[in-house]
Design a protein around this nucleic acid. Structure first.
Lengths: 155, 155
DNA sequence: GAAAGATTTCAGGTAACCTGCAATCGCAAT
DNA sequence: ATTGCGATTGCAGGTTACCTGAAATCTTTC
């Protein structure tokens, strides 16, 4: 009933994460809709901003979705002019993705509002706690990545 | 660009939460499908387990979804025999929800596997860190709840 | 007792996932 | 070299979990 690793009921951590994600969905969608971009698209765009030249499949692995799902997202971003596709000269098969100036513009436009929502989210936390929270969540994310590598090398 | 409250780029905390939620989706779905229950249904069921006698609308507020959405989930749980609906004698309109023995059975069945997934998730964290993480996430959840109360008293 | 608010229900729609299948290419081993 | 395997990409078809809109019923408030 009570998980010795967490000190709370089994599944409570997972429940909390799902609950927060659900609670973010609406305010987040409100922010970005009206800027001509979807939630999935925004996520992909921010990853491409910090890591230009990824393939769609790499992007899919990083965000824990199937390659086919990410391909759809990337297609609409490309059609909107936020992402540019370039054939990899070394790898005839792969197509490398780059965020365009227009894409950078959209992300920059949204940054203040996203930062504001994030500040609301951590508003009740004390000094240094948000950084600590992020550190812990990164460890969880990495654990999940290791899990999905082991269990489904590629489907 | 960098949020002074988090010490990380704007939106990174939100990104991490969405990423982890996405990473949990597949292993979690794998766990519970095959036990005749959906993700949304499982969530509602665990809440009803700890707080019997809620209305569907209350449940909706708690999980940050619209009342109509929760009504659908509750309908299928009722049809499956996991939830019992009882007219509130004091409030002719409200219908109170109770988890049934069958519902409790399903939740109990799944508890070990959910606990295992959760242990994997926090596997890289040190002594006492999971409890600290949960505490911080609860504060974030409460901040979100306050937000949604203020901005949309009820739509 | 009428207006305002909340709960429930029905109807219709969408975003973001999924599986399955096929074509193409790189790479390694026979 | 050719055969076979894994990875990337593309196309087709579904599902889940959300959403809005609108109406009926009941409670509360003025």
């Amino acid at each position: 009933m009570t998980n010795p690793r967490t000190g709370y009921p089994d599944g409570y951590l997972i429940y909390l994460i799902k609950q927060i994600d659900s609670g973010l969905r609406r305010p987040f969608d409100e922010l970005i809709s009206g800027h001509g971009i979807s939630t999935a698209g925004y996520t992909a765009l921010t990853v491409l901003q910090s890591r230009p030249g990824m393939t769609s499949s790499e992007l899919a692995r990083r965000t824990f979705v199937r390659a086919q799902t990410m391909a759809e997202t990337v297609t609409s971003l490309t059609q909107a002019g936020y992402v540019r596709r370039e054939k990899d000269p070394a790898h005839g098969l792969q197509i490398l993705l780059y965020i365009t100036d227009l894409g950078l513009e959209r992300v920059a436009e949204l940054a203040p509002e996203v930062a504001h929502l994030e500040s609301d989210l951590v508003g009740a936390l004390g000094e240094g706690e948000p950084a600590e929270l992020i550190r812990a969540l990164r460890a969880c994310r990495d654990a999940l990545a290791a899990l999905s590598r082991d269990e489904r090398p590629s489907v």
